[in-house]
Design a binder for these strands. Structure first.
Lengths: 225, 225, 225, 225
DNA sequence: TATGAATGAGTTTTCATTCAT
DNA sequence: TATGAATGAAAACTCATTCAT
């Protein structure tokens, strides 16, 4: 998704003449990404997208069949960006380390390209996606779920469906991503570590404690120093 | 929020003659609530709302200044519904019990009136709210935050901002509410308890375990038998 | 099709307020009929139709689902107008008299409502019609074809398909209709009789003449005094 | 009209490098002819024409000032194709023979180049023509009218304007041309002869028959053996 | 001469809102 | 208070035409 990688490509002054095709396309994709994630899909009109990309309205339709397709193409590019660190992660690694690694790399994405977080993880847009995009999203979640299933098999994740703990973990990591995307947090901040820890505590095998606080069984602890 | 309280008010057949004003207003509010939360705000047209409420299009504007106001009024009524159990909860109670109590009552709301969950907690609509509605939402969150601050003061909640742990707790409880609202879970299901537990584990003071798993210090455990 | 019957209803000055629903609908239908038949379908824009009907553009869509539907509805009303004299004609009558009767009544329609001729019989629009409209047109032609088949059975129409002679007859009668619709001819003019005669001569059983001009066999002659 | 003469010039694969100018022009003309007559003028977009001709969109404008001009040039070429047999016909010949000869040659054109019939005789396109094209069409008709006037002078065509009987004759011959162009009939078919006969019967001096069918006067009979 | 990306005016259509009844 | 026909601004999209290359 290199088209979307530069976080804040400023819109150039409109020129009357041909540009490299992919350049225009990228500008449109970025303009749409920015607007969809800040104003919402319906509040983003095609004149607005064109203006921000510095092209004429009709130019949108030389690159994307429709506004809806534009959304979906941008969305899938976003999903690919988040999928990549997941695929790159080592399946041999213990679950917690693997998830933490993914979270770390996602956080970097959120810092570099904040709009992408809102695009991919904001439920707002889900209703508007086509089947292919939904499938891409399911795939992304499915990958995390596999890592989670590995953790369960190893006895590190609590009893209950891997899908449920995936959902739990994702919701909390998303909190970090949103804060980083919003500029409130930086990738290395203590808060990001805290939330990562909290996310793990929410899904790890429960620490059974008796009334005076002695741990009876805690197989999930101690994974990370 | 009595307009929204009856869980399954069926749309009545349109009649041609006067109704009590508040009756029409309630029917409009419920129609709007149902439609906004299932189809989305923009996909819900005023003719659609009127049709579902069994009134003429123009009638909407006798009761609400605009479609946007209709959304906001319905939204604030929804917030009040969720606020009520929070206000009713006992501030003296230990934090975990109090939060669990709130979660339980919220779950009941989600079961009785699923649309309300989507209305109040779906970020989709947040962007469209006016300042008053946003304030109402902030107030709701603030109330939870106070309970959380109490827990922190008592040493049961981890170090870090109460606002952060409120956000964490809310996100996980919201997962339950959505599942219940979606009919996938029932209020008493084991899963709801699991998630409540997970939410608490995410915010409670960390269980310090050494490498062989013995609990070193766990002041937050044992609150609930 | 009384909505289209008054030949030259002048567009009234636009008023801001409700009219009888069917009145507006009729005005739109007539405006569309006039414009479609004079400028053509694509050259007739919706602002043009609205302006001529004296209503706002959006009003079109309260009465017709789309411009295409507007065309089709107007078209089918037109077909009905031409079908009526056919259905009203006496099937017992000799073929020639029956066809002449239909032609006469059609000519009256052409005089009273010129646009209708262009609408129904101009091939220009056929491509744009929906299946229902095409079926209506086929029905109209089918009715004439039945009269023609009767004439063939009685030995008055030449050998060859009834559909072929229907087509031949229609093309020549249409010439009259167009001239009358165009104001070049009047319904009672000698020319209309001449063409009617020519149309019959084109489809009647051939007059076999030998080289010195004596009629050998002419069973179709003498039908009309 | 050599651009349009080859009946089935297949669109060549697009090549990237210069062609003889007239070759490109011819390909564009044929592409336009085919598309205009099958899809209609408005349904034929310039990208479509360019694609079918195997050239880039902009290339159209190197050869024709506008889409409308393209239509008109192609149209006039079509008129010339139909005019040629008329001009080539022998003015000394008896009217019926001459008209039949023209009809025969036109039928051959229809068989060889079906699109041409639709282009020249379909009223659909007439509305879109410029004055020069209309004049060309009037000229074509005028030539037939002269032949008809000859027939009248010789006492073979009925009383009434030569223009009227020209119109009558044309409409019926056009029926043949359309059927041949549509592939339903072949040039030599019995039906084509039947319609030619019908066309002549429609315009020849009437056969006066008394009530018992004896021919009183039939000066137009017997022209063709 | 040929290209094809870009243009922008123009198209159909939607829909929240108004107001005479 | 309720109606619902009418409104018109704004939406997404099309496409003949231009022009730097």
């Amino acid at each position: 998704m290199h088209a979307l990688t530069p976080p804040d490509l400023p819109p150039r002054a409109p020129t009357r003449h041909p540009r490299s095709s992919s350049q225009t396309r990228d500008r449109l994709a970025r303009a749409a990404l920015d607007l969809f994630t800040t104003r919402g899909y319906h509040e983003t009109t095609t004149p607005l997208i064109a203006a921000r990309a510095g092209v004429a309205e009709g130019t949108i339709y030389r690159h994307f069949p429709s506004k809806e397709d534009l959304l979906n193409e941008v969305f899938r590019a976003g999903v690919r960006a988040f999928l990549e660190p997941v695929k790159a992660s080592d399946p041999i690694q213990p679950c917690r380390e693997r998830l933490d690694g993914i979270a770390t790399r996602w956080t970097a994405i959120a810092a570099a390209n904040p709009a992408l977080v809102r695009l991919v993880f904001d439920q707002t847009l889900t209703r508007l996606l086509d089947e292919r995009s939904r499938a891409a999203l399911r795939d992304l979640r499915g990958q995390i779920e596999q890592a989670m299933a590995g953790g369960k098999a190893a006895g590190h994740v609590r009893r209950g469906g891997a899908d449920l703990w995936t959902e739990v973990w994702l919701r909390l990591i998303l909190l970090t991503l949103e804060r980083v995307a919003g500029g409130q947090w930086q990738p290395g901040d203590a808060a990001t570590t805290q939330v990562r820890r909290a996310a793990w505590d929410a899904i790890r095998v429960e620490v059974q404690t008796d009334t005076d606080g002695a741990t009876i069984h805690d197989p999930a602890s101690g994974e990370l120093p």
